[in-house]
Nucleic acid binder design. Sequence first.
DNA 1: CCGGTTTCTGCGTTTTTTTGCAGGAATTTA
DNA 2: TAAATTCCTGCAAAAAAACGCAGAAACCGG
Lengths: 249, 249
Amino acid sequence: MLKKERQAYILHQVNLHNKVLSSSLCTEINVSEDTIRRDLQELSEEGKVIKVHGGALSHSFNQVYFSTNGVYSQNQKKTIAQKAIGLISNGMFVLTSGGTTIIELARSLPPQLKATFISGSIPAILEYMHHPNIEVILIGDKISKNSKITVGSEAIAKIKQVKADICFLGTNAIDVEHGITDNDWEVVQLKKAMIESSKKVVCLSIAEKINSVQPIKVCGLDEIDLLITELPADDPVFKPYLEAGIKVA
Amino acid sequence: MLKKERQAYILHQVNLHNKVLSSSLCTEINVSEDTIRRDLQELSEEGKVIKVHGGALSHSFNQVYFSTNGVYSQNQKKTIAQKAIGLISNGMFVLTSGGTTIIELARSLPPQLKATFISGSIPAILEYMHHPNIEVILIGDKISKNSKITVGSEAIAKIKQVKADICFLGTNAIDVEHGITDNDWEVVQLKKAMIESSKKVVCLSIAEKINSVQPIKVCGLDEIDLLITELPADDPVFKPYLEAGIKVA
DNA sequence: CCGGTTTCTGCGTTTTTTTGCAGGAATTTA
DNA sequence: TAAATTCCTGCAAAAAAACGCAGAAACCGG
């Protein structure tokens, strides 16, 4: 096998699988590891692949996972926020949890919207406060420094006193079988209370979190009215969710 | 699994869920905890994640909102804050109002201090949250956008449930004859409640505000235990206050 | 076709990287 | 305060990479 041929094969494999192992290449092509290493070296110098210890990665792999993009998935979150805003109308009482998607929602609220937002999330509250026409109700209690949200029985009791028109939950993991799950016990208690206190429950989740599971259960899918992601509602990934009776937007 | 691959997975998880536990990662990827720790170490050195005890946090989520606004008369307020800090000891329950002097106090708290701070002021809460050892209790209710503090009957009711060791009031105006006065009716109600709920009441005020009057009365001098300004305690301006039975520091 | 040169490849050795492990220190939690 | 985690340091084994070298193959001008 010619050198050029070999390198073409390697390149092909890298682009196909986003990664190659030197060890598997040298058994596939039946050459020594040194040869493979030299090939990878050259391809790397030409910028065709990214050489790493044990093999090589495609350039796209690096772009996807190590993007210097400041805020992760911000564009997706903006899309989600826009869809969510369509559900809010003047005069509504809106309960929200915390999380970066909720922050994006808070930032994207149209200035002329007049509504009342209720939350215990400090970052979310900060955004709501900047809005000219929104009334902000803060849920008080002990602050969890991790999640930057008020947690505890007082907070839950306060939430239970409310009857909100709609509740937006930033979602950490959603799965057909396990429903909504999360990783912070206290935050889960809050979310449960929020769900109980709202006429309509909307989950905001970037598509990547779909079909993932976290240790603590928030609620089953049956308690969710609407799931919002950045994908179009007819994406095949939603089929099992639609069958479970959940609406998708 | 290649090292880069592993790190990409970790980064992905962190950005997705805002936090990861070393323990869960090492079972997911099936490597030792040391390896995970080393990966987190590297990613943290590259600024991709924030390493914490037991795992890592996403950088975007941990972003702190710094109110870098140039504080008026900052040096005087720093002096006041230092004097005030001397009154706080470990284990205390501390009630604070809002205002820039209080913010300065919050920023100057020594890191090893362990105490519980209770407030409805959003800027103050932000500062308390940055402190490693302080428990923060947030007073909830409607937020007044003007004063960035929660106001209303719920907030007052919550304050009345507390019995704090000490209460720090940012003071807008103090006068021998009229006592403490302010210009926001709702904030005044809060301060009154705070005074009632505290064993000891301390007024923080820059000297400029001494002998000035505002429209709404908070309380008379007799309800104040201590007045702190940036001036030395024996400054002649305090003479009438000392005669009125108030202590000055 | 031929001698000389260049390039390529594989092998042995040395060096570097990676990973897991044991202990003791530090931190968190009850 | 005591127990349990988690963290750090040094170390050793395994894997991979780098290096030097030599034989083989290809190339090339005459």
